[in-house]
Simulated scan of single mutants.
Amino acid sequence: MILDSAWVVAWLTAAADAIAEQAPTLNELDREIGDGDHGENMNRGFEAVRAALGDGAGGSTPSEVLRAAAMKLISSIGGAAGPLYGTAFLRASDAVSGRDELGSRDVVELIDAALRGIEERGHAVPGDKTMVDAWSAAATAARAASESGGDAREVLQAAAGGAEQGAASTDALLPHKGRASYLGERAVGHRDPGAVSTAVILRAAAEAAA
């Protein structure tokens, strides 16, 4: 599959499917260290994206579709996740602006830009037990795959695997941001729900390109 606007639509649709399926798990993870509504909020946001894409919203380039999705996520996801994911997709949109098709380096730029947006918006860094841990691991894996000659699909596969490893790494971390930080040591041993939803979304990106 060519990584063009049709791929972005396929990615976001697959992400909506996966988030809907994983919403109860995400809620349970969030219940352990947060408000317990991360899955519900993410599902509402991605269903809004799905509806918008079904109504013809988006555009003719990957950047335009990503931007349309970002605006829906910002307006539909409650809590901190809306601005964070919205910023991620807005920055990703900017990173690939003007390109009709995306290659391996474009994918790396897209993920890097999303990561930077989340870091700046949330004031978090790797190791804080947030979604940044998943995005950072994804960016590192994507860059390594691209530099070793991988094509765009291989870069996406690497990013998805990196995100999953990054999410798993949050189990052992002490939280420094968000509601989980109030729990201190009691949060150790629990996985960050935002890192898990990141892994779900990036795995959907890889599967949509397969």
Rank of each mutant, 00 (worst) to 15 (best):
G98I: 09
E47R: 14
D37W: 05
P62N: 07
G34H: 12
G54K: 11
R50A: 13
S93Y: 08
P24Q: 15
A81L: 10
R44C: 08
G36S: 09
G56S: 14
I77L: 03
R91G: 04
A69H: 00
E101S: 13
L73R: 08
L90C: 03
S104R: 06
S104A: 15
G79V: 00
K72S: 09
E101R: 15
N41T: 10
A95N: 02
R31M: 10
R105H: 12
L26K: 13
A48M: 14
L102W: 08
V96N: 07
R44M: 12
E101Y: 04
A95Y: 06
G45E: 09
D30A: 12
T61W: 06
A70W: 00
G98D: 14
L66H: 02
A48H: 06
N27P: 10
A92Q: 12
L66V: 08
A20G: 15
G78F: 05
A57D: 15
F46M: 14
L29Y: 12
A68W: 06
G39N: 04
N43I: 00
G86L: 01
I77R: 03
V49S: 02
A88P: 00
T61K: 06
P24E: 13
S104N: 09
P62S: 01
N41A: 06
G39S: 07
N27K: 11
D94W: 08
L90M: 14
E109R: 13
L102M: 08
L66R: 03
E28F: 04
T61I: 01
I77G: 01
I33M: 13
D106W: 10
G59R: 05
D55K: 13
E40W: 06
G56W: 11
I19K: 12
D35K: 11
A52H: 13
Q22S: 15
D30I: 07
N43W: 06
A23C: 15
L73W: 00
S75E: 11
D55G: 15
R105W: 11
I77P: 02
